[in-house]
């Protein structure tokens, strides 16, 4: 059994851990750290429920080794709200009813967060492309797209 010592930043906090080399980032977050907001849907990189930000970019945590993240920065759904304040995206997902069963929601919000971090004026196509790797079985995506558009508009309004 091969194990490694890793040091990484998770939601702004420095974390030291010993991990098995074959442990995925997803299982590390869920089972070792109890951060169960990141969901397990397929374990094959095909559903996006496990999306987290790795150094700011959206990745499938099921296709990432925990040990691979040594020295890097990971943001999960639990890391978005600060001081009890939801992000505009989280609020818009609530307001627009952009979720039903909610199982894809954390991953969906992480992908959308990554988009809005770099593109404050996304077109509808750009939004759909940003969430192309996040499957949703309930909503038909329409309300999700609408919530992301509304969050972008809100952020632009805040900038202005």
């Amino acid at each position: 059994m091969h194990k490694s010592m890793i040091n990484l930043t998770i939601n702004g906090d420095e974390v030291d851990a010993v991990v098995k080399d074959n442990l995925t980032l997803l299982d590390f977050l869920r089972d070792q750290l109890g951060l169960t907001g990141t969901k397990k849907g397929c374990e094959e990189g095909e559903c996006g429920a496990c999306t987290v930000l790795l150094d700011g970019l959206p990745v499938n945590s099921c296709c990432t080794l925990a040990v691979e993240c040594n020295g890097r920065e990971v943001t999960t759904i639990e890391g978005l709200a600060r001081n009890g304040q939801l992000t505009p995206l989280q609020r818009q997902f609530i307001d627009k009813w952009a979720l039903q069963c909610g199982y894809c929601t954390p991953g969906m919000i992480m992908s959308a967060t990554a988009l809005l971090n770099t593109n404050h004026h996304p077109t509808e196509l750009e939004i759909r492309e940003a969430i192309e790797g996040n499957l949703c079985r309930c909503t038909g995506y329409a309300k999700i797209v609408e919530a992301i558009q509304a969050a972008a508009a809100e952020m632009n309004w805040e900038e202005a």
């Binding site: 990189g45 996006g48 999306t51 790795l54 970019l57 959206p58 990745v59 499938n60 296709c63 990432t64 992908s111 990554a114 492309e129 940003a130 969430i131 192309e132 790797g133 996040n134």
Partner: peptide
């Protein structure tokens, strides 16, 4: 290729 997430890595 694949998805946004896959292409990021």
């Amino acid at each position: 290729i694949a998805s946004t997430q896959i292409r990021a890595k």
